[in-house]
Design a protein around this nucleic acid. Structure first.
Lengths: 118, 118
DNA sequence: ACCGCATTCAACTCAGGGGTTGAACAAGTG
DNA sequence: CACTTGTTCAACCCCTGAGTTGAATGCGGT
């Protein structure tokens, strides 16, 4: 797991991390704040944040002794591009398949009608 | 990791599995076929397929002794919906932040005619 | 019935992920 | 300076994930 895409997907594979992202979409927050809803230690949440950070999903600034976490939404595009690419490709393929089937229909419908449709 | 979203993200976190999906977007394929490009055992690929299958990304039919793997692109929507939701939310938030900043500009430009609205 | 091919099951190794606790490190505040 | 708050580092457990090899299963072909 070395490329960014892997890191992003992997980061979002964890429900806690997804939830943190969801909350960060609404407002920046510090580690303690973020940790509050879950019943895991603050250190665990800190680790989760590190994962999100290394995936490029999040950045951190300093504000006195707090280190507010900020969501970086651009990385999402990396995923959507990948996903959309193959979704489109698959759909395009099905479309062609439909064409082929339609073609077969006309083949069997119009030409040699010495053998009912399948 | 029990919910589908986690399974899908987790499934795509692996480069080999992503590559398999990419190839399956182009054409269905059997396990051996799929395994060929990678230098891992066929059994390993079989396991990868199981992961993709349990994530709902792939289905398998039977054709003689082969078990062609077929990409199910609908599951992608699950991810894009999630991603887009929070991407939009974050962007909306930034937009509001811009408004606030603009507001502050006008406040300081056309100074307090009685302590501007909150 | 037997052989061969494609696929999966079983048992095992090894590395890494997510969790813990306890100590360390910053950065205000008395 | 001492103290408190917020956050991270370190060492450790336990379990899962990706890989292996070897044997079983499913299904034609002859």
């Amino acid at each position: 797991m070395d490329d960014q895409l892997s890191r992003v997907f992997s980061a979002l594979a964890d429900p806690i991390r997804r939830d943190m992202v969801a909350r960060l979409a609404d407002a920046d927050a510090g580690v303690n704040e973020l940790a509050e809803p879950y019943d895991v230690s603050v250190q665990a949440v800190s680790k989760h944040l590190k994962v999100l950070e290394e995936a490029g999903l999040v950045t951190r600034t300093r504000d006195a002794q707090r280190r507010p976490v900020h969501l970086e939404a651009e990385v999402f595009d990396l995923m959507t591009k990948w996903i959309e690419r193959y979704r489109r490709q698959a759909e395009e393929r099905y479309r062609r398949l439909d064409d082929v089937l339609a073609e077969m229909d006309t083949d069997t419908a119009a030409p040699d009608r010495q053998r009912g449709a399948s």
